[in-house]
Amino acid sequence: MSTITLTTWSLEMTAPGDLVPAAVPGPEVRVERAEVPSPEFSRFLYASVGGDIHWTDRLSLTRAQWVEQLGRPGVETWVAYDRGTPAGYVELDPQPDGVVEIMYFGLLPDFRGRRIGGHLLSVGTARAWDLASRWPDREPTRRVWVHTCSQDGPTAMDNYQRRGFKVFRTETEEKQDGPTPGPWPGRRPAVTPPHTASPGPGPRAGPPA
């Protein structure tokens, strides 16, 4: 397996006034908080958004581990919908000392390039800044940060910088290159029917997991 040089950029915003909101794409797009933590829904979003851009770290988590992650105080998932269909999401991760990380952000493949991403990031960043208003035990946000890498979508860095994020750290590493899991991780491949003396229907391919 070949190796590639992976570059990771960490970006931050240190004041709510630094946010430069993108234009709202239209009335058919709305962004709502998923107030009831749902491991199944969050895993669908994670796998569907990240399947072609090397998101793999959460694919092996058990349902209990998903419940634990989503149930932490201050963790929020904000979902963009296009005429009722999930188009993408932002997951906010609260950290000590008033820091909030945009842990995951992205769009499902069919919704990219339609001006939804800038609006979703704008809303997600704004909600990171006012997170304490929904979690009384949390101190006010003083810093919002995010990281992106050279395997993310080609417009990711530009979107962050247009919204007002500034790079504060750049790291590079060598890693093994490999295929992405695709939008259907865990799907069983079709099975080639074995050769038999008598023709008949072969084994069926398993459904997507």
Rank of each mutant, 00 (worst) to 15 (best):
T3N: 11
T5V: 15
T8A: 09
T8Q: 11
S10W: 12
E12T: 11
P21F: 05
A22D: 14
A22H: 11
G26L: 07
V29S: 01
R33N: 07
S38Q: 10
P39L: 05
F44Q: 12
L45S: 03
A47H: 06
V49L: 07
D52W: 08
W66G: 03
W66H: 09
W66R: 03
G71S: 15
G74M: 01
V75Q: 08
V79Y: 02
V79W: 01
Y81G: 04
D82I: 02
A87Q: 03
D93Y: 14
Q95K: 14
G98T: 00
V99E: 14
V99A: 13
I102N: 03
M103Q: 13
F105Q: 00
D110L: 10
D110T: 13
R112L: 03
G118D: 08
L120P: 05
L121A: 13
L131F: 07
W135G: 04
R138C: 02
E139P: 05
Q151S: 09
D152C: 06
G153R: 10
P154K: 00
M157E: 10
D158G: 12
N159Y: 06
Q161A: 09
R163D: 12
T170R: 15
E171Y: 06
T172S: 12
E173P: 05
P181Y: 08
R188D: 14
S198M: 11
P199L: 08
G200I: 00
P201Q: 11
P201K: 10
